[in-house]
């Protein structure tokens, strides 16, 4: 299972990074969101850390939808999906491989969003930035697990980006609440940290539920039936 998953992940990363398939779109959309939100500020204002954190994660969520659509669309051009299904490995390796690739791409995109949040939304790094970083790691894992499971469902549908977002975003709410809180801890000068551990626990719970659901349910979403 791991061999196949690693091969799939490498193939997707190769396709996205060296042959530049669609990554630019996801990046631009996220950047635009962050930039456009800075319009809500008057001259000299500074956005509250929580609002900035929310913007950052909203940009990431849109990026996630585009990335996973892109990853699953790769197989549809010439029905390579059937080839993947015939690999001598469980179908879940596709889920795992795509999740890993998606997580790397998402993290790469966030490397661009983070400076944008500091520049456009006027944020300063606080003392507890490690909490934000932990939030990003846990958040990306959850987004990858859920995106990889549900990204497969919109394959071959018209309007698949919007379909995926309306199904995915409500499910992401608990994760988004957690990581937005965690991110805002890192941006605030003097955050109220008493619930920090609970937020981390909640995000970890989300990750485990979606990792489990992905492993169990993926074969029902991704199969040879047309």
């Amino acid at each position: 299972m791991l061999t196949a998953a690693i091969a799939i992940c490498k193939k997707d990363l190769l396709m996205v990074f060296t042959h530049g398939a669609g990554l630019a779109q996801a990046l631009l959309l996220g950047l635009l969101l962050v930039f456009l939100f800075s319009l809500s500020l008057n001259a000299g204002d500074r956005l509250s850390p929580q609002a900035a954190a929310a913007m950052f994660w909203l940009a990431s969520a849109f990026c996630q939808v585009l990335v996973f659509n892109m990853l699953y669309a790769a197989e549809e051009a010439e029905k390579a999906r059937l080839g993947l299904l015939m690999l001598p490995a469980p179908v879940q390796s596709v889920w795992l491989g795509k999740a890993a690739a998606g997580m790397v791409i998402l993290a790469a995109a966030q490397c661009v969003f983070i400076p944008a949040v500091f520049v456009f939304l006027g944020q300063k790094m606080g003392e507890f930035w490690t909490l934000s970083l932990a939030g990003i790691l846990i958040g990306d894992l959850g987004m990858a697990a859920s995106g990889s499971l549900l990204g497969a469902l919109s394959v071959g549908q018209s309007g698949r980006e919007s379909l995926l977002s309306i199904v995915l975003f409500p499910l992401l709410t608990p994760l988004l609440l957690s990581v937005v809180k965690l991110a805002s801890f890192g941006l605030e000068a003097d955050p109220m940290l008493e619930n920090a551990l609970r937020w981390i626990g909640l995000a970890v719970a989300f990750d485990s539920i979606f990792l489990g659901a992905g492993l169990v349910l993926f074969p029902f979403v991704y199969n040879g039936e047309d």
Binding site: S146, L149, L150, L153, V167, P170, L171, T173, P174, L175, L177, S178, N195, R198, W199, L202, A205, F206, I209, F210, A213, L217, F220, V221, N223, E225, D226
Partner: peptide, 28 residues
Amino acid sequence: HRKASLCSVVTIVGFLDVPLVFLSARLW
């Protein structure tokens, strides 16, 4: 049959999400 399995997956995942939504909203 494809619709049936897709909708089933979303319905199940959606319900699994409920406790998390509740807990996170309470913490908010």
